[in-house]
Each structure stands twice: as structure tokens, then as C-alpha cells.
């Protein structure tokens, strides 16, 4: 097992979680922790259970056993929207944006949990409601600048290239001002240039803003470069955990990847 994590600076703690589907154990007695400011990578072959872990954290899957603690609160039985309100944001492996809406509207939707205007104030759009929308617009524009999406602000998401959509989805998660960011293969299907850009954003988020993150990624080069620590999964189990350099040479990991792809 990996190094012991002191409770004090632990943001997320998964304790002995098991998730079963009919005839299949997607997560098998898994424990892991994300520390403050840390970028934790989860790797593993296809079907290893990586996405299922994120779905348990954000509240879409309900494990049959185990606990999930976020900032020392037990969130195992909280509904998904309540977890978002605690500050858990995520992106999806197959992009879950609003294709009919503009980039601006999509990123603004990430501000929803910070908006306060009630139904009456919103319908009258006077004073506070208007000022609030303007204030949120400013935050959204900062994110658009950060992700270099200026040229696409008023484009409908459906019209955009895949790589740009992935950026917009990151932007929407950032608009939530997350305290934990879950990224499910944010670079899948991107060109080399787009991957480099995405890596730059992720690094800056960690270094400048210190947002703790879980990154699922198949590109080993990216994972080794970016992550502070790695958890390796296979058939729902954690088969290794540790620093990238150590993981690279772990025989169990090489074994798990044999016939899939070799660890670089």
C-alpha cells in the first residue's frame, strides 16, 4: 500500500468501497485518499473501474460497502447535487455539455450553485438580480480568458471541435470554483497541441490555484509528467499506489498492462 496519509490535509477519502453490478464487481474493496493541493492520477486498463470510482464520488453510483468522506464529512449517502454544492466538480469521459447552448451559457451554468436570485427577483430583473448576473458574467469571462476560448464565446457547443468541447467542459467545472476537481480522460481524442494546452491548464490549476484533482488518463506520458501520485486499478482492485517513477517499474503494473499497452 502507499504512504500513510495524515487526516489533517486529506480532502477526499475513500474507505473500502465495493461497487457491484449484476454479475460484476466494478470496484473491489478500494481505498484511496486525495490530499490538499494534490494531483492524483488513476490509471488502469479499460474496464478497470476508474470511471466508476468518479461516479461513486459524485454520487451517481451507490457502493454496496464502504464510505466516502469529503473534508471529513461522510458523503456516502448524499445526493449528487448536494455533493456538487460541497464543491466537487467533474468532467465526463464522453463530454456532457449542453450542445444547443453557447459556450458562454455552458460555462455560466457552472455558476448556478453560486447564484442566489430567487424566482421573483429573477423575473423582475431589477437591482440585485441584475447585479448578480453581471458579477457572474465577470467570473465566466475570466475562465474564458484562462482557457483561451474568446473566439468561441458565442458559438453553440455542437458546432465545436471535440478538443474545444473538452476545454469548455473543464471551463464549466472551473466556474463552480471547485474544492475538488475530477477529470475523466480530459485529453482523450485531442491533437498533440491540444493535449499540451490541456496539460498546461491542469498544471496551472494545481500550481497557482492549488485545486486538488483526480485525473484519469490513458496517455502514460501525460500521467507521469503531471501527477504527484498514482493509483493503479485492475478489475476493480487497487493493484499499486505510489510515486510515478516507482509505479513505472512496478511488476504488477507492467503485468496488468501486458497485452493492453506497455507502460512508457
Amino acid at each position: 500500500m502507499g504512504p500513510a496519509t495524515p487526516l489533517a490535509d486529506t480532502v477526499l477519502r475513500i474507505e473500502r468501497v465495493t461497487l457491484r453490478f449484476v454479475g460484476l464487481t466494478a470496484i473491489d474493496d478500494l481505498s484511496l485518499a486525495v490530499r490538499a493541493g494534490e494531483l492524483l492520477g488513476i490509471i488502469g486498463p479499460n474496464g478497470a473501474g476508474k470511471t466508476s470510482v468518479l461516479n461513486c464520488i459524485s454520487g451517481f453510483y451507490h457502493p454496496q460497502a464502504g464510505r466516502i468522506l469529503f473534508r471529513d464529512q461522510d458523503i456516502t449517502h448524499r445526493p449528487a447535487h448536494a455533493r456538487a454544492r460541497l464543491g466537487i466538480a467533474r468532467t465526463f469521459q464522453n463530454i456532457a455539455l449542453y450542445p444547443g447552448m453557447t459556450v458562454l451559457a455552458n460555462i455560466t451554468s457552472g455558476r448556478l450553485l453560486h447564484m442566489r436570485a430567487g424566482v421573483l427577483a429573477g423575473g423582475v430583473y431589477w437591482g440585485p438580480a441584475q447585479r448578480e448576473l453581471v458579477r457572474h458574467r465577470e467570473r465566466v469571462e475570466e475562465i474564458i480568458d484562462f482557457l483561451e476560448l474568446e473566439g468561441h464565446r458565442d458559438h453553440r457547443v455542437a458546432e465545436l471541435a471535440y478538443g474545444v468541447q473538452k476545454k469548455v467542459e473543464l471551463g464549466r467545472a472551473l466556474a463552480m470554483e471547485p474544492r475538488l476537481l475530477l477529470l475523466d480522460e480530459p485529453m482523450a481524442g485531442m491533437t498533440a497541441d491540444e493535449k499540451a494546452d490541456m496539460a498546461r491548464y491542469i498544471l496551472e490549476l494545481r500550481e497557482v490555484r492549488g485545486i486538488p484533482m483526480i485525473l484519469i488518463e490513458h496517455d502514460m506520458g501525460v500521467v507521469m509528467d503531471l501527477c504527484d501520485r498514482l493509483v493503479v486499478m485492475d478489475y476493480g482492485r487497487k493493484i499499486a499506489e505510489g510515486l510515478p517513477e516507482a509505479i513505472q517499474h512496478d511488476p504488477r503494473v507492467i503485468q496488468a498492462y501486458l497485452g493492453e499497452e506497455t507502460v512508457a
Partner: peptide, 26 residues
């Protein structure tokens, strides 16, 4: 007014992809 503010955005988020809306805290 309502549909271009918080309420409208949240309603459209629910309409177009309800699980994504939940992830946004809706």
C-alpha cells in the same frame, strides 16, 4: 427575464441533460 437568469439556465440544464445538471448542483 426568468429564463435568461438562474432559473432559466437551471431549467434548460435539467431539460437537456439531467445528470450534468446534478453535477452543477441543480
Amino acid at each position: 427575464n426568468l429564463v435568461r437568469g438562474r432559473v432559466g439556465l437551471a431549467l434548460m440544464a435539467v431539460r437537456d441533460r439531467d445528470y450534468a445538471a446534478q453535477v452543477l448542483g441543480v
